[in-house]
Simulated assay, not measured.
Amino acid sequence: MAERHVLGLSGGKDSAALAVYMRQTHPELDIDYFFTDTGEELPEVYEFLGRLEGYLGKPILRLNPRRDFKFWLKEYNNYLPSAQTRWCTRMLKLKPFEQWVTPMLKSGDKVTSYVAIRADEDYREGYSSKQYNLLIKLPFREAGIDKAGVMDILESSGVGYPSYYEWRSRSGCTFCFFQQKIEWVRLKERHPDDFDAAKALEKDALEHGSPFTWSKGESLSELEQPERISEIKAEYEARSARLRKRIPSNPLRPTKESPEDIDDVYGDDEGGGSCLICHK
């Protein structure tokens, strides 16, 4: 029997900040850092993980699913994943973690998994353990660390933010269905090959009867039309302007505007409610 400590990284800011925080506050713990790689991640995610490895001074284990996205798409009758049916998270994120940790648990090891749920996220719950020797800990919630605290951790450590935050509000696959429409537009502008690959997957799925498109209410072929792109950009700017007027300024903690804040612009109707394990 052994005592193991594991911390999953999504490629996002919160889990990265938690890894930095644990290294700073609990250097005595030998933590295994892991990233569940779907093979469909943004290139910026891999760059950020490399930067984080440099700070942590140890490699981040890549957990790869035994079957890729296209395999599971066929298994699910070519139905695209959606907010209602999140089979991608289940098969490409949770399953690989369970396959990795199960041998430890069966051998009687005590495994503590650290999850990056912040103190200002009372509405979120972590991975629900069904094993008596798999313990889930929420260090940020216990220490009262909120979103501003996460920003301070990343900036003061020199790790900084993932570069995709320049244009996208969360990590995850290139074709994550929780993307907002403005983010699909930016994906087309920054990674046109990835946009085209997502469009091809969507076209094939629709031809096989999938009731879902990647973006709510329209296909990517419709979304990428020049007049539609102009409309999406104009709508985004108008909603962003309204949001800025509602946010009180705090001279003691100036707010840095970033695409991450468009979570607040759109809410749950478009892009909100993303999977915890994918974007934290």
Results as ranks from 00 to 15, higher is better:
1 M>V: 02
228 R>M: 15
211 P>H: 02
269 D>L: 03
212 F>I: 02
68 D>Y: 13
275 C>S: 14
138 L>S: 08
178 F>P: 04
199 K>F: 09
104 M>T: 00
200 A>I: 00
247 I>P: 01
59 P>W: 00
188 K>I: 01
249 S>Y: 06
66 R>W: 02
173 C>P: 10
190 R>D: 02
145 I>K: 07
68 D>R: 13
166 E>F: 10
47 E>M: 07
8 G>H: 01
224 E>D: 07
8 G>Y: 01
105 L>T: 05
52 L>F: 09
2 A>E: 07
231 E>G: 02
230 S>I: 08
194 D>G: 07
169 S>M: 10
31 I>W: 04
90 R>I: 14
5 H>C: 02
115 V>K: 07
120 D>S: 03
69 F>T: 04
127 Y>S: 06
186 R>Q: 06
269 D>G: 02
240 S>W: 08
183 E>M: 10
256 K>E: 09
98 E>N: 11
142 E>H: 13
185 V>P: 01
236 Y>K: 04
188 K>Q: 01
90 R>L: 13
114 Y>W: 11
127 Y>L: 11
251 P>H: 07
69 F>S: 12
276 L>I: 12
159 V>P: 13
186 R>N: 09
69 F>G: 10
157 S>Q: 12
168 R>Q: 15
54 G>A: 12
201 L>A: 01
116 A>K: 15
121 E>C: 11
113 S>L: 10
14 D>A: 06
69 F>N: 06
267 G>Y: 06
46 Y>E: 09
97 F>L: 10
186 R>M: 05
118 R>L: 00
231 E>H: 01
26 H>V: 00
147 K>T: 03
242 R>A: 14
66 R>D: 12
81 P>W: 01
221 S>H: 14
87 W>A: 10
17 A>W: 07
144 G>Y: 07
90 R>H: 12
170 R>I: 03
27 P>E: 03
149 G>I: 03
228 R>N: 13
134 L>Y: 02
253 R>H: 14
135 L>C: 05
179 Q>L: 14
63 L>E: 03
183 E>R: 10
193 D>T: 03
22 M>W: 09
243 L>R: 06
36 T>V: 08
187 L>Y: 14
259 P>S: 13
29 L>W: 03
272 G>T: 01
276 L>V: 15
183 E>D: 07
61 L>K: 09
250 N>M: 15
25 T>A: 04
88 C>M: 05
239 R>T: 05
30 D>H: 15
58 K>A: 11
73 L>M: 08
164 Y>Q: 14
265 V>W: 04
109 D>W: 01
169 S>H: 14
78 N>W: 09
13 K>I: 00
160 G>C: 06
279 H>F: 05
76 Y>K: 13
25 T>D: 05
226 P>D: 13
123 Y>P: 00
53 E>I: 02
8 G>F: 05
253 R>S: 15
33 Y>M: 00
241 A>W: 11
115 V>P: 08
22 M>V: 05
169 S>W: 04
171 S>E: 05
74 K>F: 13
213 T>N: 03
16 A>D: 12
215 S>F: 00
242 R>S: 12
32 D>A: 04
40 E>F: 02
135 L>K: 01
163 S>A: 14
